[in-house]
Design a protein around this nucleic acid. Structure first.
Lengths: 145, 145
DNA sequence: GGTATTTAGTTTGAATTATAACATTTTGTT
DNA sequence: AACAAAATGTTATAATTCAAACTAAATACC
């Protein structure tokens, strides 16, 4: 008889597959070519800019070394700027350029449209349940970190 | 007023972070050094072996080209074997070697122990809710794919 | 039966990411 | 103040993954 914890372990193995099923077929085309990490970074920046690199790095799910490369790419494409932050000269805040804001908003719109289309395959009750499930996971995340 | 679909889109963005919080600090040490994809492949094989490569490939969440490399690594470490399958000479079934079974079971045990320790930070009610949420997502996945 | 189309898996080269060492700055301790 | 320890971000190198072209085999269609 498996414990709840064991069941959680087994079920959480399928989360990556759930993510890829949600995302598959998504073909967001913007004026500049972006990879998945660049898109995610812009999505998070679009929600709230001005945080330090480490924050976005965790959200995007990359190590800090890798995230430096992603930010370099975005800076070279003139979508993002590193600006110095508060009094701490080690820290950089990330902000969107004007061009970056436009691209970020477009990605945000397209991303939501894509997910909506995916989710449209479900009936109303399943959609409500899925939303509820994601809210629980979101709350759990806050408790765990 | 955002729709349910829009909220689902926003909340699903944090799933990768949830996964990395769940996994962080996990240091599964076995007799052979394995990367994350190799471990996941062994976990799935430990649950059910003998399927064709494409099946595991989807579960692990890699493109088929990348998955070929992962299987090569596991075969070189003598943990997995490709055996020909049914009458279709294009298909290969993956099975664990004796050594592979041992390693897979050890990883499975350690993985579940790790998740249990993580989840132990939550109270009983939150654990039940998390389990419920993951069951919903699992069911949703079946409906979506 | 023959030809096109699809499917399963591999290969190759490029893109992405991780790991570990590093420089710089801040914080803590005495 | 001085020195150790921790935090922020970068660099360099290696490992991992992707994308697209490819081989071989099965299926569909005429």
């Amino acid at each position: 008889m498996p414990t709840k914890e064991t069941k959680i372990a087994e079920l959480s193995e399928i989360l990556p597959m759930f993510i890829s099923v949600l995302l598959e077929g998504s073909d967001i085309k913007s004026e500049v070519k972006l990879n998945y990490s660049e898109e995610k970074t812009l999505l998070f920046l679009n929600k709230h800019e001005g945080n330090q690199m480490t924050d976005y790095c965790k959200k995007v799910g990359l190590t800090k070394g890798s995230f430096t490369s992603v930010v370099d790419l975005l800076v070279n494409k003139e979508l993002v700027e590193r600006i110095s932050m508060c009094n701490d000269r080690r820290k950089y805040a990330l902000v969107l350029t004007k061009k970056g804001k436009g691209v970020a908003q477009k990605i945000d719109t397209e991303y939501k449209k894509h997910i909506s289309q995916k989710v449209a395959a479900l009936n109303d009750e399943s959609i409500s349940e899925l939303l509820y499930a994601l809210e629980i996971i979101n709350n759990t995340l806050d408790m765990l970190k």
